[in-house]
Amino acid sequence: MTRIGTSDLDIFPLSLGGNVFGWTADRDASFAVLDAFAEGGGDFIDTADAYSAWVPGNSGGESETIIGEWLAARKPEGVVVATKVSQHPDFAGLAAANVRRAAEASLGRLGVDAIDLYYAHFDDESVPLEETVGAFGELVADGLVRHVAVSNYTAERIRGWIGIADRLGVARPVAVQPHYNLVHRNTVEETIIPVAQEFDLGLVPYYSLASGFLTGKYRTTDASGQSSPRAQGAAKYATEQGLRVIDALQEIGDAHGASIAATSLAWLRAQPTVVAPIASARTVEQVPDLLAGARLELTADEVAHLSSISEWTPANA
């Protein structure tokens, strides 16, 4: 188990991404994935109130609703659920009143008394940071939220949030959620990880598998025929350098009897302050690799080799 920052949340070191629930995984498929994850030892689920408002016919909150129905049906013990605010069409931004209404709506969909980990999903510079920090602090004081976190914030804004929280005497963030993986490293390693180390924040990276590229599914530099947004997102990494990363992952994975995906997640877990990479599964068959990635321990030399070979920034990454 791994502790998230300074919180009391001890979790299995992998977070199951809920972005696919109500999108590419319907209710039954989502229940099956959640069952497989929990049966395999997983206990940390990540979602957002906006998932999946981008799907035609959806309005946002579909993922939270499915997770809430699963929690009610299965009644699992010790499951930690993280959700986020600022992007739901009905609750956009981080004004104090909006944050409160959005949290109450999320609580209703999830069917829980308190949100374990509540993220500011994206920074909202149209609202004074002090107002947002105060709103999150009140949610904790009122028992609606156990712990506060930030996602997609710059190092400067994270420092600002912590300084305001201390001045107001409210809860500090305990976690940061950045875009971070083997082929998307520079900004996080240069700016976010130092702040996380200074303030004992846990990193919970998203896009941990680079839209599927780090599963080894894309093994050619020819991106033609990749029509889906996910495939196009992965294809940009399929350069000669990117494929060398995949080759190295396969070689190291083979030595452990592990998949490329599991090996990539293991590298991410080995980075400073990282507590639990987020990875999604549309099907039950995809779950074992994710669980394996939470248990695989690479040697220091293997981690260093992967770090060395992936020192490159893809175009448009």
Rank of each mutant, 00 (worst) to 15 (best):
T65W: 03
A120T: 14
E69M: 09
A48K: 04
I162W: 08
R295D: 05
Y118M: 07
P13F: 09
V145E: 09
A300H: 04
D26M: 00
G42L: 07
S7M: 13
N152W: 06
T83M: 13
I11H: 07
V195D: 01
Q197F: 01
Y51S: 00
G93H: 07
N98F: 01
D124M: 12
P272D: 10
S52M: 01
I115F: 08
V127R: 05
G257T: 10
A97K: 15
T154Q: 01
L94G: 03
K217E: 14
A82G: 07
T220Q: 07
T47V: 04
G57S: 05
S227E: 15
R295A: 15
Y153A: 06
A300Y: 01
S211G: 02
A304M: 01
T154L: 04
A155I: 11
E190D: 14
D116G: 10
R3P: 07
H256P: 12
Q87A: 13
A50N: 07
D113H: 02
L34H: 04
A304N: 01
S211Q: 11
I164G: 06
Q177W: 02
E240Y: 01
I192C: 09
T65F: 00
I252Q: 13
P314S: 05
I4S: 09
A95V: 03
A231H: 08
S264M: 08
Q232T: 13
T273E: 11
D35I: 06
T83V: 13
G212C: 14
D124T: 09
Y218M: 06
E240F: 00
